[in-house]
Simulated scan of single mutants.
Amino acid sequence: MTRNHDWHGDQITRDTVIDAAYRNTQNVRRFFLSEIGERFKFDRPFMEWMRTHRGDRMSDAVAEWLRREAAK
């Protein structure tokens, strides 16, 4: 059995899988800030995307955030 990722303390990389234990933590925010930069912000639609994309990787989440930002 695979253990869930500890979103508060485990290292997050582009290969980290979004699992059922996913939470919007400061650790997650730091990951997105390092990947996207200071313009990164959580919003409700993106948080919902994260919640409904279990099995995707954090690289997919970065690409989705950038796609949404470009569409604004």
Results as ranks from 00 to 15, higher is better:
64 E>C: 04
46 F>T: 04
26 Q>A: 11
58 M>A: 05
35 E>A: 14
36 I>R: 01
19 D>S: 05
7 W>R: 07
59 S>H: 09
43 D>N: 15
23 R>M: 03
27 N>L: 04
13 T>A: 08
46 F>W: 06
57 R>Q: 14
71 A>R: 12
3 R>E: 14
35 E>H: 00
39 R>E: 12
64 E>H: 10
64 E>T: 01
34 S>Q: 11
50 M>T: 07
38 E>N: 13
33 L>F: 10
24 N>E: 09
25 T>M: 08
20 A>F: 05
65 W>H: 06
11 Q>S: 12
66 L>A: 03
51 R>C: 06
66 L>T: 08
35 E>T: 00
18 I>Y: 04
60 D>G: 14
9 G>H: 12
27 N>W: 02
5 H>G: 01
66 L>K: 12
14 R>K: 15
50 M>Q: 12
34 S>L: 07
59 S>K: 12
57 R>V: 02
29 R>T: 15
56 D>P: 00
42 F>H: 06
7 W>P: 05
67 R>S: 12
51 R>W: 09
46 F>A: 06
44 R>S: 10
49 W>F: 14
8 H>T: 05
14 R>W: 03
10 D>C: 12
14 R>H: 10
62 V>A: 01
66 L>C: 08
54 R>C: 09
45 P>T: 05
64 E>Q: 14
58 M>S: 04
25 T>C: 06
14 R>Q: 15
